[in-house]
Design a protein around this nucleic acid. Structure first.
Length: 356
DNA sequence: AAGTCGGGGGC
DNA sequence: GCCCCAGACTT
């Protein structure tokens, strides 16, 4: 057991590495898409999305030439929808400026939208064999524990220390497997809570383990309580049963997705007053707010909502886009093809199932 | 450097 | 409930 830590890590990875989809038929494009989808997303969650996405967009060019709406529809449910918009934009940029081939250096990769320090390092090392570090949340946990390194890993000084340490461990001839092994160790052994140190090839090198303080790293900062909002949404149907939907502005929260129009309740306002006001402000129409159909709870990263869905009747005016990208009357069947946030998709499914 | 950006799994 | 996940962008 006198091997260098990196050799023990690589030996462990060769035996215990998972057989993940993007580890087969590795092309820079496939690695890139996987890394983007895996951002803040568990491999198990992302798996089915990846297979579907790659079946529909097998090449970079097919992605670049697809309509954004279709890309967003395949992304629906994954969250962080700007990833999909950036991925689509980057594919078009690579097609124009690089002849459809991803650049092979960290520097050039990082110029593409949606590619930051981590993904640039991951693609450069895993797809192109370049000696670049790639430190995600998993690797960060492993490295801070190995060093028992204090401090918020989001701070630049801490990140620099982790990168320098990773670089010092990295075998120059196997940067990709080394980076993947570090992440795999974090994902399957060096867990946030109850790490399985008895199965860890680096336990003897781990300062936190020696201290019996594994779970103290990485140090985390306290979280503020999430605000809670009451939100309303309207189901407005025309004489043919078509439903009024609005597409959210591209650069906003849930940008590019279609929703039932509505909005946040303001201080001292009733839910019905809120909805009538939102319809005036967003769509320039007067509505009669009818019965409440359903109430849903949902949590986002920075706030929680209670969503109250009302049936409404159009009284005056023609819907226009005052605070969104587009409004459209769609049939219940057409809703299936439009990208929507999960809460709106739940409402849409209830409509489809005649459950409302 | 801090705030924003989804959704779900696991405990 | 709370934490965290193969992070990046904006201000």
């Amino acid at each position: 057991m006198s091997l260098h830590p990196a050799d023990r890590l690589l030996d462990w990875f060769a035996c215990h590495g998972r057989d993940l989809p993007w580890r087969q038929n590795r092309t820079p494009y496939r690695v890139w898409v996987a890394e983007v989808m895996l951002q803040q997303t568990r491999t198990e969650t992302m798996g089915p999305y990846y297979e579907r996405f790659m079946a529909r967009f097998p090449t970079l060019e097919s992605l670049a030439r697809a309509p954004l709406e279709e890309v967003l529809r395949l992304w629906e449910g994954l969250g962080y929808y700007s990833r999909a918009r950036f991925l689509h934009a980057a594919a078009q940029k690579v097609l124009e400026e690089w002849g459809g081939e991803l650049p092979d250096t960290r520097k050039d990769l990082q110029k593409l939208p949606g590619i930051g320090p981590y993904i640039a390092g991951a693609v450069a090392s895993i797809a192109f064999g370049r000696p670049e570090v790639a430190i995600d949340g998993n690797a960060c946990r492993v490295l801070t524990r190995l060093l028992a390194l204090e401090g918020d890993p989001r701070r630049l000084s801490v990140r620099r220390q982790l990168e320098a340490y990773a670089r010092s461990l990295m075998p120059p001839d196997r940067p990709g497997p080394f980076n993947e092994a570090l992440m795999e160790l974090g994902a399957t052994i060096c867990l946030p809570r109850h790490p399985r140190c008895s199965d860890c090839p680096l336990a003897d090198d781990c300062r936190a383990h020696q201290l019996g303080q594994e779970e103290a790293f990485p140090t985390r900062s306290p979280r503020r309580p999430l605000p809670h909002y009451e939100v309303t949404a309207a189901i407005i149907q025309d004489a043919d049963g078509r439903v009024l939907l609005a597409r959210r502005k591209q650069n906003s929260f849930l940008g590019g997705l279609w929703e039932f129009p509505g909005g946040k309740r303001e201080e001292g306002e009733s839910l019905k007053e809120c909805l009538a006001r939102e319809m005036r402000e967003e769509l320039g129409i007067e509505v009669a707010v009818g019965e409440r159909l359903v109430t849903l709870e949902h949590g986002y990263t920075h706030f929680r909502i209670t969503l109250h869905v009302f049936r409404c009747r159009l009284v005056a005016g023609t819907p226009q886009c005052l605070d969104c990208d587009e409004v459209r009357w769609v049939t219940v069947d057409e809703m299936a093809a439009l990208p929507m946030p999960v809460t709106d998709r739940r409402i849409a499914r209830m409509l489809t199932d005649s459950a409302l």
